[in-house]
Design a protein around this nucleic acid. Structure first.
Lengths: 354, 354
DNA sequence: TTGAAAGCGCTACCAT
DNA sequence: ATGGTAGCGCTTTCAA
């Protein structure tokens, strides 16, 4: 049995309060006594105050949760998510807080439980899919959180860090439109929950439930509407997951259609890279000159020569954590919009004249 | 004030035990009563049992710690570490456990505190530098742990997953020796704690404190000893950190020496890539034909054509977590050696005749 | 500077 | 099937 604080107190012949003070409030006792206590603790093999008991008593835990509303193992394969985590890590590091990664089981009920049971003082919610239920749980627990997806119904005290998805998406799409492309496919992850890979028909972009995906698709559509191509003329492709494989599956057969798109705008770099994979797999003589764009500007994008929109990944994570750990006095400061930039590389070019 | 379990009990007119059972042991009460209780809880905004209180009472937390004995923000820049984390994540996911990433402050005392205060049921210790102190704390807390660095003084109940570092390192080095290289530099991270970037003189490999680094350097040295090149003839280079920048700094000026090495054996792919960076920065006409090898076979290695040793990163993380979460009955099974494989790519070639 | 008392919110045992 | 009791190990007033 591990010795408790009580055991140390008994050994030294002082009260528990004094031992507690020796650890947590050194100024409350004489240096000599403190040394005596710490020595006795060492002797007894007392490992210091039990973190759980301390948390219960103090009312806070000293760690923040990071919630990926997707498989945790997936999150680590997403370069953008990893940079985000690095940012959160940097902030927690400075703050002396730990970060808890909470895996969400596939079943909805179990996932709720996971969020309910997480021992944290707040959450950074990194959303890749439906998240409302998670926010409900967090609110119910009375915990603060920072979201990275734009939400219409965000309360005034709800903190956010992100980008203007729609404007950013507009910028790449306008670039592609400017190159003359008119037959265009839009590719996104989770256009509709649980839709299969491939083409999808939606009466309008507002049917897309996930705010990030909605924002990006809307931005793409805006740019083409400006050049006279409207929603119904765009090919919408669903990728069941944000992975190169999912993207490749989504564009299967696409370029063998009668009038294939001359450009594919993807909702993320990972998806765009998957499209390039699919193109590269075709025999060299049969590669249509398709322009492809991504989103995020992850490290791999540069190597692949991908035209994309840059957003500061690490910064996003860092600010999310800081917003949580040091809530700004002014609630308006709890809403941070990060800059984005269009990065033009070799993956886009003029539309072929046809 | 958030309602407590007591409040729900009062509202329904049952005891706390019954409410507790409604959440944790549904089979202990009638479905009807359980529904009544859950309804009342919803009504009152009771978010379910407080995780901390529950942990205190139950005696376990439901999360495992992952300890990087380096900056957390650094860990996310290391592709091998990220794959390792992905493996841990996959295992925790299946097990319904969370993972706590504990940032270690620079100061030794604070770092001890961080490990002492982590609310976890055990640790996966991923070591990049001196780790003994951390293991001391963990043992003192009586927590189980799994280490990934080979340790001489490992007790019989201490679990381990890793590779035969020395044999693996020998395999690449023998490949390079077989290509005829005799003037060779060995590059490693933290050869000595706090040594600056660049050449370092050590009377023998046994002066290297970190077990992983020691194993790899020893394996390199073994292979060259076999062809008559002994330790003193090898150039030992220290990189202050496992990063491309650190590696580039370590080899600065190296190739402008009178008789520069014809091969650089790096202790990790990241370092090897840094060497390639340094080489690539030289004017095209002035690039010595240096063979470079890495270690790990991270995804980037393939793209760079790096000759390296493959070790299963994700598997390592997965097994580490599993060893922690489902301790094998047979203690011998708590010691897992993973396979490695020499991967020969374009970064190594025959030594120039001179 | 030190100690006594009062819980933090919950669960598990043992009765009923 | 349900409730009473007894803590889990600690911190924090407050009083001495």
């Amino acid at each position: 049995m591990k010795p408790t604080l009580q055991a140390v107190a008994d050994a030294v012949g002082v009260s528990r309060s004094t031992v507690s003070n020796a650890y947590s409030r050194p100024d409350q006792l004489s240096a000599a006594l403190r040394e005596r206590i710490l020595d006795a603790a060492r002797q007894l093999g007392y490992p210091g105050p039990n973190p759980t008991a301390r948390s219960l008593r103090r009312g806070f835990v000293g760690s923040i949760g990071v919630l990926f509303t997707s498989q945790l193992s997936y999150a680590f394969t997403d370069p953008f998510a990893v940079r985000f985590l690095a940012g959160v890590g940097a902030a927690t590091e400075r703050h002396g807080t730990s970060m808890l990664l909470v895996p969400l089981p596939p079943a909805q009920t179990d996932a709720r439980r996971a969020v309910e049971n997480a021992a944290v003082d707040g959450f950074c919610v990194y959303c890749v899919a439906d998240e409302e239920w998670a926010l409900d749980v967090i609110r119910q627990r009375g915990l603060p959180f920072v979201s990275t997806a734009p939400r219409d119904d965000a309360g005034p005290d709800e903190r956010f860090v992100g980008i203007d998805e729609r404007a950013a998406a507009h910028s790449v799409a306008a670039h592609v439109a400017g190159l003359g492309h008119r037959r265009v496919a839009l590719l996104a992850d989770s256009v509709l929950l649980d839709a299969p890979a491939g083409p999808l028909t939606l009466s309008g972009v507002d049917q897309v439930p996930h705010p990030t995906t909605h924002g990006r698709l809307a931005g793409f559509a805006d740019a083409f509407a400006e050049v006279g191509v409207d929603w119904a003329e765009l090919t919408l492709l669903n990728a069941p997951g944000n992975s190169r494989q999912a993207a490749a599956a989504a564009v299967a057969g696409l370029f063998d259609r009668p009038a294939p798109p001359t450009a594919v705008l993807a909702g993320s770099d990972v998806l765009a890279l998957g499209v390039l994979d699919a193109l590269a797999e075709r025999p060299a003589g049969d590669r249509p000159p398709v322009s492809v764009t991504g989103f995020d500007d992850v490290p791999e994008a540069a190597a692949a020569g991908l035209t994309t929109v840059r957003q500061p990944a690490e910064e996003k994570g860092r600010i999310a954590a800081e917003l949580l750990l040091d809530p700004p006095a002014d609630p308006a400061a709890g809403h941070v919009l990060l800059p984005t930039a269009l990065v033009v590389r070799a993956s886009t070019g003029p539309a072929p004249r046809s």
